[in-house]
Simulated assay, not measured.
Amino acid sequence: MKPCRTWLMMCWCLLLVACGSTGNRTKQFKDSDSQSEPENSPAMLNVKMGVAYFERNDYDTALEKLKRALEHNPKLAIAHSAIATVYASMNAQIDAERHYELSVRYAPNDPTILNNYGTFLCQQGKPLEAIKYYQQTLANPFYKTPETVHENIGVCLMKADDYVQAEDHFRQALALNPNSTISLYNMVIVSAGKGEGMKARAFIQRLEGLTVLDERVLKVAYQVEKKMGNERAAQSYLAQLRKLKKS
Results as ranks from 00 to 15, higher is better:
residue 85 T to S: 11
residue 160 A to L: 00
residue 55 E to A: 15
residue 210 L to C: 13
residue 9 M to K: 04
residue 131 I to T: 01
residue 42 P to S: 08
residue 212 V to W: 00
residue 236 S to K: 10
residue 196 E to F: 02
residue 6 T to M: 06
residue 169 H to D: 05
residue 230 N to P: 05
residue 219 K to W: 04
residue 54 F to W: 08
residue 43 A to M: 09
residue 184 L to M: 11
residue 137 T to W: 03
residue 241 L to F: 06
residue 243 K to F: 13
residue 246 K to I: 03
residue 75 K to S: 02
residue 236 S to I: 02
residue 192 A to G: 02
residue 51 V to F: 15
residue 178 P to Y: 13
residue 222 Y to G: 05
residue 138 L to H: 03
residue 102 L to V: 00
residue 79 A to Q: 01
residue 20 G to N: 09
residue 211 T to E: 15
residue 112 T to V: 14
residue 199 K to P: 03
residue 23 G to W: 03
residue 1 M to V: 10
residue 207 L to F: 10
residue 31 D to N: 10
residue 170 F to T: 00
residue 125 G to T: 07
residue 65 K to Q: 15
residue 176 L to C: 09
residue 99 H to M: 00
residue 20 G to M: 01
residue 118 G to L: 06
residue 70 L to D: 12
residue 180 S to K: 06
residue 164 V to C: 00
residue 208 E to F: 09
residue 228 M to Y: 04
residue 151 E to H: 06
residue 222 Y to V: 06
residue 22 T to G: 14
residue 91 N to E: 13
residue 232 R to W: 03
residue 179 N to Y: 04
residue 4 C to G: 11
residue 61 T to S: 11
residue 221 A to V: 12
residue 43 A to C: 15
residue 28 Q to P: 13
residue 81 S to D: 07
residue 53 Y to S: 04
residue 213 L to C: 01
residue 120 F to A: 01
residue 241 L to Y: 03
residue 152 N to V: 05
residue 205 Q to I: 04
residue 183 S to N: 03
residue 219 K to F: 06
residue 117 Y to L: 12
residue 80 H to G: 09
residue 214 D to N: 15
residue 33 D to K: 12
residue 209 G to N: 01
residue 81 S to F: 07
residue 186 N to C: 10
residue 187 M to F: 07
residue 203 F to E: 11
residue 157 L to P: 05
residue 137 T to I: 06
